[in-house]
Design a protein around this nucleic acid. Structure first.
Lengths: 188, 188
DNA sequence: CCGTGTTTAGGACAAACGTCCTAAACACGG
DNA sequence: CCGTGTTTAGGACGTTTGTCCTAAACACGG
């Protein structure tokens, strides 16, 4: 349907703009200009700005889940799959340097705003956390699997933040190498 | 002078509000209400909102430098001083859980806004980076001191981000313990 | 090609934004 | 207590915000 197409377009552009400019700093006018529709017409698709945010988060959850599922099929070993996760920092290096991590920065912003949709954004983190936990378990780690998952999440967040602050690619590469080594050490 | 007092009050409240609500989301009215002065009178003290931001960053730089200087006098060994840095995550656990790291979240926001004062915020990171580098050098590390400083900065940023997302105190304590151990291992 | 439900453009609306002005209140040396 | 420079309150300004309404354009089964 045309409805789904237009709605999907709005959510897609809103997703991009929320990531690049932040949720609060992105106005209806920004999204409307990006999609190429009139400002006031938003009310037909979304009653409030918060509804757009929820749709964006839902989209991200679906996309992330699909990506993780793909990785679980394609990746040969659990260790290789985890390396695939770490590689996000390399593959998306440009965007992260410019706008930070999409998950981490959205969570930070919603935390400050005291926004109710924070729980939805947190779900994105949980998706990665559970996926990583499963990979560590497949590697033979049992009780500490969740701790290791959180540790790796933590490191990727830290690298993303400092990458955006210092715009230093060699720092990112060096930390990624260390994360590779750390994962290998957990197998023993 | 009364001018310095009022100006300092404005900067102090702006500092708090920028941290708790974000720079963009904090209006002149918010600051005016917090200080208890009239809205329009801001123009006398600061011509633009960006000027307030610069004053806030300057204040943070001065306060941070003073804190680091104090630590360098009080801390017995370099390792103990570094532990003092790590302890920020414990001492300020409540605030970090609510609003994230003041340095990291401000940097993220200014990065997204493409704001010119990002360089000033980045300076705050550099202050910690250089201080940590000096402590590692005093511990006997020579060539890798800066790498270790960045690594520790990275980990504290990651912990702060996930602390705000998951509000999990036991995670923070566990990671802090691991950071202690990591620092000890660097001495050998 | 008609009728009906979907989608659209355009703009109205009050509120809030950053900026800026004016005039009064203040502090204080003379 | 007067005069002068500093600091203040209060509000005007044009813009932009999120929200919401109306009427026209559209799609499409009958």
């Amino acid at each position: 349907m045309a409805q789904d197409t237009k709605r999907a377009q709005i959510v897609e552009e809103a997703d991009r703009l929320f990531y690049q400019q932040g949720f609060d700093h992105t106005s209806f006018a920004d999204i409307a200009d990006a999609v190429g529709i009139s400002r006031g017409n938003f009310y037909y698709h979304f009653k409030t700005k918060d509804e757009i945010l929820d749709a964006v988060i839902e989209r991200r959850i679906v996309n992330t889940q699909a990506m993780l599922d793909r990785w679980e099929i394609e990746g040969e070993t659990p260790e290789a799959r985890i390396r695939g996760f770490i590689d996000i920092l390399v593959v998306n290096a440009d965007k992260i340097r410019q706008f930070g991590c999409p998950v981490g920065t959205l969570t930070s912003e919603l935390t400050k705003l005291g926004h109710p949709s924070l729980s939805g954004a947190k779900e994105l983190f949980t998706l990665f956390r559970q996926w990583l936990k499963r990979q560590f378990e497949a590697m033979g780690v049992t009780e500490k699997a969740d701790e290791l998952a959180m540790h790796l999440l933590m490191r990727s967040q830290g690298v993303a933040t400092l990458s955006a602050a210092f715009k230093d690619d060699s720092f990112v590469r060096h930390e990624v190498d260390q994360m590779y080594r750390w994962v290998r050490d957990q197998a023993a």
